[in-house]
Design a protein around this nucleic acid. Structure first.
Lengths: 142, 142
DNA sequence: ATTTATTATATGTATATACATATAATAAAT
DNA sequence: ATTTATTATATGTATATACATATAATAAAT
């Protein structure tokens, strides 16, 4: 048996682990709204960019195009967004938030703020550097 | 329309985003082995703790018990681990790595090290603090 | 010893994720 | 104008994830 590293320091393993923890934390806060954090973030991005396309959301969230397609189906099913073919280019979808979607966001945001506040408090002055490090890692996708 | 935060600073959203990026990065490195990073980390933990139970792995990885059950099925299907009922307590499973599993790990670890080395290089002196911050966040699950 | 409570894992269900490939539409080349 | 290439999204497939609940086994209470 060779001596292998224990992988305790695995950047990917540790990121995945913490993502599991924090997702449960945020999702529990959002639970009264029925929105998951992923859906809330996606919906907020749609609300900020009217008539956005699937690929644009994918680029913004560093998410595969097919994942965006699947995830917006859920928001659409609940009537939070409207998906229509774009005028100029019929290959593209034009995605917009609906009235219901805005109401749901307004309901979710204060709960999100509560979770966010608690995390920022726990991290204290580590928080800004943390977001910067995440952004540094994101660059490997370029 | 009320003024809502843009959620750019969402700790959960940013962690999920970076986890998508880094998982693709590590998984591409491991691709020749057919192992995903999650599987590799899980397998390494099993190899380090013979006759471990589902719940013990879950506690270690901060992963739901049901997720561990599902994830070890995949390793089992490939013959990398052996799952038998425990002697003392038949409710528990006794999970161990197989010869094939060890061979697969020995094949995967150098590729993992390559990915890990690149990330550590990109982060430089930020790396240690980064792991510490992740550990700080993990405490919210206690 | 029998009933009751607890614990460990499994199963049903829904979402999140990406890759490979298909399809449909536009753009480029001739 | 027609063919060819490119681009945008969708679909098939596999994995990763958690919650609620079921099941089976052990432990505790009587």
């Amino acid at each position: 048996m060779l001596k292998l590293p224990d992988m305790e320091c695995c950047a990917c393993g540790n990121l995945r682990k913490t993502t599991r923890v924090i997702t449960q934390f945020y999702d529990r806060h959002l639970q009264p709204t029925g929105l998951r954090t992923t859906q809330c973030v996606l919906l907020r991005n749609i609300s900020l960019h009217r008539n956005i396309a699937v690929g644009e959301l994918a680029a913004m969230l560093l998410m595969d195009q097919s994942t965006v397609t699947r995830n917006i189906e859920i928001l659409n099913k609940h009537g939070y967004i409207k998906i229509v073919p774009e005028n100029q280019d019929a290959r593209k979808k034009s995605i917009s938030i609906t009235m219901n979607g805005e109401k749901k966001l307004e309901e979710a945001i204060p709960l999100w703020e509560e979770a966010q506040r608690k995390i920022e408090q726990v991290l204290g002055k580590q928080f800004d550097g943390f977001l910067e490090t995440l952004a540094t890692i994101n660059k490997i996708s370029e």
